[in-house]
């Protein structure tokens, strides 16, 4: 580690969502606009875990600083926030309210809270695996007038500058931006740690502040949520290499994709 890094007192916010486990079976609820949450196991959003790991690793490498996890959601998010505390985050803030389907309205709530926090970095997952909105982090950056790099798959911070790469079609885009900045994190950035058992016990003693918030008008209405159309049953063409000619015929004349 360079002298520079040791000296830096990094303050990092990580915004966290709570989502259904990616293995969960999705059932549409009676409202027809949301899933039925009964029996669904909720976990921290997988992409947010990359953000958490990045934040913890950066402060760890800097040798000084603070990590703060922020969740804007109903009360159930507190369990997710405590998971982050168990992983080593210093404190948590629960922005208690109900997010809307309008990412911009939600981003305003987060931006209002983060604006005066004095953060060097504000980290998000690149998307949440429930609504796939892929916008909140970027919007927070725009609202705060901060530089933003999205879907980063590598990150180094030195001398107040973040150097990132992000996957684009056919290659990897290289970019830098000055801190403070907002980054959204992709898979590949790191391997998130598990909370340790000691960390789980310690989490109970760490601060979790509850801040009631009100969200502005939503300009997005969920009209419906439906199951995707079922695929028609497929056909077994046989066993082993002997079935290959039948497959070629099917792909050429039937599916017309060859």
């Amino acid at each position: 580690m360079t002298y520079f890094r040791k000296r830096i007192d990094m303050k990092i916010a990580i915004c966290l969502r709570r989502v259904p486990d990616t293995t969960a079976k999705i059932v549409i609820g009676p409202s027809g606009v949301a899933i039925d949450e009964a029996g669904v196991k909720f976990v921290p959003n997988p992409y947010d875990e990359y953000a958490l790991e990045a934040g913890l690793a950066l402060v760890g490498a800097a040798g000084a600083g603070e990590t703060v996890v922020v969740g804007f959601a109903g009360d159930s998010v507190q369990e997710t926030l405590r998971t982050a505390l168990a992983m080593g985050v210093d404190r948590a803030v629960h922005l208690q309210g109900t997010p809307t389907a309008d990412g911009l309205a939600n981003a305003r709530v987060l931006a209002d809270h983060l604006r005066d926090g004095g953060y060097d970095l504000i980290l998000f997952g690149k998307l949440a695996v429930d609504d796939y909105g892929q916008q909140t982090g970027v919007m927070v950056a725009e609202l705060l007038g901060l530089p933003c790099a999205t879907a980063i798959s590598s990150l180094s911070v030195d001398g107040g500058v973040a150097t990132v790469t992000r996957e684009v079609e056919g290659g990897v885009e290289n970019a830098t931006c000055a801190l403070p900045a907002v980054l959204t994190c992709d898979k590949g950035l790191n391997t998130p740690r598990l909370p340790s058992l000691k960390g789980i016990m310690a989490a109970k003693k760490k601060p979790l502040d509850i801040v009631p918030v009100t969200v502005g008008e939503s300009r997005v209405t969920v009209v419906s949520l439906a199951m995707p159309p079922e695929r028609a049953a497929g056909r077994m063409l046989g066993e082993g290499a002997a079935a290959v000619p039948a497959l070629i015929t099917a792909l050429t004349t039937e599916a017309k994709v060859l």
Partner: peptide, 23 residues
Amino acid sequence: ATATGKDLAPRLAAALGAPCGMD
């Protein structure tokens, strides 16, 4: 909705004060 488009759309939405439909 490419990697670049998905980066750009929310920036445009925030600047225009507009809702954003992704992907």
